[in-house]
Write a protein that binds this DNA or RNA. Structure first.
Lengths: 185, 185
DNA sequence: TCCTGATGTCAACAGCCGTTGGCCAACAAT
DNA sequence: ATTGTTGGCCAACGGCTGTTGACATCAGGA
């Protein structure tokens, strides 16, 4: 174990800068040169650490939704808990751009869309299955995701005034009954 | 009035090719050269007809949602009518990519996001106001849009299997009660 | 006949991009 | 003292992009 201190630091700096750029501008508009400038190093270092722009992108796409264990909450409160967790996740730590990277890029980049589907299959679907039982989850998981991602899309990417104007509490109050309705369907 | 036949035709051909490219690949990945090749003309003609890539893009963003008059349907049937019209609009004529262009590009291109907000303000908001009355529309238009655009996002852009697996009827059955719930909220 | 305007082609420019390879300084081990 | 490794910079290549301007073609009016 030699001193890898500096190496790890710049690697992290590159990844942080890349996440910010990818989140703000999407894949095609962010350049290696800009990421390198943000991280205060030479563009060629980005290549040395990550191999290529695609691989850097891939590293930036790692996302953990940190979904709560929905099996623990009473069935009646699942919708509100879902919306609240989701909003807090987006509204919260602005340095945590991983989610934004994923959603913004997935719309134009097939590789990111693949990741999105993986995240969905590996994290969202099981969480819902734990809360609702397998059959109901299979029937409603798609529409539940559509509603939650629709919120993210209109509020954080498109920034529709009618959506950004709402407070987090408004969002919970307005969407929780909607989720409850599709779950009951 | 001289014979402008050829001019109008190539102009339309360029616009058609541009819409397809923008819809499939987004703004940054579509090149003037590719659009010109699709339209079977020289790249410089695109510039002559539209001035610049940005202006061509702007022309491609013209969208008419053709929302039905919701004032005519009974209040109880508004949610289902909304979802059905929306799904038919997307599912229908595949040559009509204008909506896809707008949504796909709005996520990474600020100019397109502006257009999206304009379309919302000029078409969606008034239609809802006619159906629900001004105060309720103001309160719920944002969340209704979020749910409808969430469907478009997950079904046509991200193509989440759990959403593409559903039939149009499933979508109406699953989302109409949800919309009704937020409208009642 | 000559001219003019529209329609279209061709070739090139300038800029930015991802990527590469060579060179340098510091430092640890031999 | 020499060697090898690590972390870093610099300059360049080749490719693709939007964009431009010079030229070709051809119809129709003076």
């Amino acid at each position: 174990m030699t001193e890898r201190r500096s190496s790890d630091q710049t690697r992290a700096a590159i990844l942080r800068a890349a996440r910010q750029r990818f989140a703000a501008q999407g894949y095609e508009r962010t350049t290696i040169r800009a990421v390198a400038a943000d991280a205060a190093i030479d563009p060629s270092m980005v290549m040395r650490y990550f191999g290529s722009k695609e691989q850097l992108f891939d590293a930036a796409l790692a996302v953990d939704l940190r979904l709560p264990d929905l099996g623990a909450v009473p069935a009646a409160e699942v919708p509100a808990a879902l919306v609240r967790h989701f909003v807090e996740r987006w509204e919260g730590d602005p340095a945590d751009d991983a989610l934004l990277v994923l959603l913004r890029s997935a719309v134009t980049h097939e590789q990111a869309a693949d990741r999105m589907r993986e995240v969905f299959a590996a994290q969202v679907a099981p969480a819902l299955a734990a809360a609702l039982g397998p059959e109901r989850a299979a029937r409603t998981a798609g529409l539940v995701s559509a509603q939650l991602l629709g919120l993210a899309l209109t509020r954080y990417l498109l920034r529709l005034p009618a959506v950004t104007a709402l407070s987090p509490d408004d969002l919970v109050a307005g969407l929780a009954p909607a989720l409850a309705a599709t779950l009951a369907g």
